[in-house]
Amino acid sequence: MCGRYSLSKSKIELEERFQVEMLGDFKPRYNIAPTQLLPVITSDSPKGFSFFYWGITPEFAKNKPVSQKFINARAETVMEKVSFKNAFQKRRCLVPADGFFEWKKLGKKTKIPYRFTLADEGAFAFAGIWEEYENELGESNHTFLILTTAPNSLVSEIHDRMPVILRKEDEKKWLDNYSSQEDLLKLLGTYQAEEMLSYTVSPLVNSITNDSPSIIRKTSASIDQFGNYTLFG
């Protein structure tokens, strides 16, 4: 499961990396959580950033609020689930990020937060799908979720799933409405561990009210969710 990520790059850096335009201002985000309004690049509008809510509302659940339950979909079964199949076929998106967080469990009560990035710590894109629905006021809202897959050897030490990270050269294919289902499914593999980094971060990441550069800084020692130092890393 991917339930928290970061996008600490500036508007200029994101426009240069993805070669799309962002209208309006953008404030770097260090502790992104479900239900928040976030930048994505869609197959319907590949030349610019759109802002959608993280937490998809499936087609069969019309007029429902943004869901915290549907924030991820398993890549292996995305074509088998009624709730996600149509979106996978017609409404795909890039979810810009520069890192994601997972928590290593040490016993029943202790958890250590880790951040995962690419080796160069640059921006990348998760594979996402999106939906459009009407809220209770009859207004049109857009939501997205992130596809997940089996973890590589780096992530598997912490968690049994990881988000699908697309290679830069595959991003256009993911957005291309003419890509075949077979070609799209081939893009949903596990990113190589040798091309990634991981490190422990501050327990400040545990609260979504904290959103500052200190969230993504490497800690010199492992600190659990209560702020206690631990010998395990």
Rank of each mutant, 00 (worst) to 15 (best):
D120N: 12
R161F: 08
K109T: 09
L137N: 10
I223T: 12
N210P: 04
S153D: 13
S207H: 00
L204R: 08
T219F: 08
L118E: 03
T190M: 12
P151M: 07
T117N: 02
S179E: 10
S140C: 02
K218E: 15
I158S: 07
D160A: 04
N206E: 02
G138K: 01
S220G: 15
D120Y: 01
G122R: 02
N135E: 00
T190H: 10
I216A: 04
S214E: 13
E131H: 05
Y229E: 07
P213W: 09
E136L: 05
M162V: 12
A125Q: 06
E134C: 03
L154P: 06
R217S: 10
E194Y: 03
G189D: 14
G122I: 02
K109V: 01
I216V: 15
D183K: 13
M162K: 10
W174R: 08
D224N: 15
H159L: 06
L187E: 11
T117A: 00
V201A: 03
D176A: 13
I158K: 08
L184T: 09
K104T: 04
I216F: 10
E169S: 14
I215L: 10
I215R: 12
G189A: 12
F116C: 03
S179P: 11
D170V: 05
A193E: 11
N141W: 03
A193S: 15
L137K: 14
Q225I: 05
P213M: 10
R167C: 09
S207C: 00
M162F: 12
L166G: 07
T230D: 13
F116Y: 05
Y178Q: 14
G227Y: 05
T149Q: 11
G107P: 02
F232A: 15
L197D: 06
F124A: 01
R161M: 07
K218M: 12
T209P: 00
D176R: 09
S179Y: 11
V164A: 12
T149L: 13
I112T: 05
V201E: 04
T200P: 04
F126G: 02
K186M: 13
M196L: 02
A125C: 12
Y133L: 01
V201T: 05
